[in-house]
Design a protein around this nucleic acid. Sequence first.
DNA 1: CGAAAGCGTAACCCATTGGTTACGGATTAG
DNA 2: CTAATCCGTAACCAATGGGTTACGCTTTCG
Lengths: 150, 150
Amino acid sequence: MGYAFGVDEVAGAIADPVRREILAMLRERRMSAGQIADRFAISRPAVSRHLRVLRASGLVHDELTGRRRFYRLDPAPLARLAEWLTPFVADHPASAAWSRRFDALETEVYRTRRDRRRTPAGEPPAGTGRGPATKSVRPSTKDGGEERSA
Amino acid sequence: MGYAFGVDEVAGAIADPVRREILAMLRERRMSAGQIADRFAISRPAVSRHLRVLRASGLVHDELTGRRRFYRLDPAPLARLAEWLTPFVADHPASAAWSRRFDALETEVYRTRRDRRRTPAGEPPAGTGRGPATKSVRPSTKDGGEERSA
DNA sequence: CGAAAGCGTAACCCATTGGTTACGGATTAG
DNA sequence: CTAATCCGTAACCAATGGGTTACGCTTTCG
C-alpha cells in the first residue's frame, strides 16, 4: 500500500534534461506554468506536456490560482527512487544510515510543505547560479510583482 | 573530463523494469547473456538490446569468454545519479553525510570489483527474495557447472 | 461586456523504443 | 570437418515521446 507512483515513472521523468531543469527550478520556489516556460527555448505547449509528465510521476503538484497554475516540487517520489538504488550503493559502503534518511524524508517533506505555504513571500535566494543553459532570456514578462498577487 | 556517462542515460536505463531486474540479478553474480535471457519471458534478442542499453549507460561491463559474453554490474553511474538527486533530498534532512558517502562510493566500487573477482564460487545468498516477476522458469540450461569454467 | 492573458489539449510529424523473426559470425563439441 | 551453441545484428512493426501550430476554455482587465 501507499506506493502510488512507481520507479518507472519517476526514473522516466528524470531522464529528460528539460524536466530535470524544471525540478531544479522548482526546488527554490514555486512557479507558474508561464514562468517556467519562459525559461526554455521550446514552445509553451511543449513545456506544458513536460509538466504533465512530472505531475503524473508525482514529482510536482499544481494549484490553480486565478488564471495561473502554480507548480511546486514534491521530492517524495525521488526518495523512493533513492530507496531502489540504495542496495546497489549500500552493498559495501555503510548501509543502514541511508535507508534511515529516506525513511525520514517522506515525513520531513510533509512538514516542509506546510512551511512553504506559510512563506509565500517574494523570491528566496535566487539560487545556485545553475542557469537553465537553454534560454534564460526572461523577456518582459510583465509579471514584475508576481507571487504576492493574491 | 571524467564524466563520460550522463544522468540522461542512466535514468533512462533504469526506467525500464526489465533492465532494473537485470541489474538486480547482476548485483549478486556475473551472468552470461544467455543466463540472463533465460530468466525473462521476452525473446533473447530483446534482452540483448536491453543489455546494449545498459552497456551504453555504463551500468554493466561485458567480458567475452569463449563463446559466451559475461556481464557484470558497475554501480558507479548510479552513484552519479544519486549525486544528482542529493540536493533534492538534502534540502531539509541532514545533508553533508550524503555527499560524503557518494564521494566514497566510486573508490569503494573499485575495491568491490576486485573482491568479486576473487570470489567466483557458487550461488551467494540468492538475494532479497525479489523474484524476476516475469518468468523465472530456469529451464534445463545445461549450464549446471557454470562460472568456474575458466 | 468585450479584449487580452494564461494554460491545457488536440492534431500532426518525425525520431526513438521495445518487441518479433531471420540471419550470420565465432567458438566449442562430436 | 560438420554440427550445435551462444549471442549480437538486421529488418520490420506498433507504440511512445517530444516538438510544433491551432484552438478553446477560464479569468482578469478596461
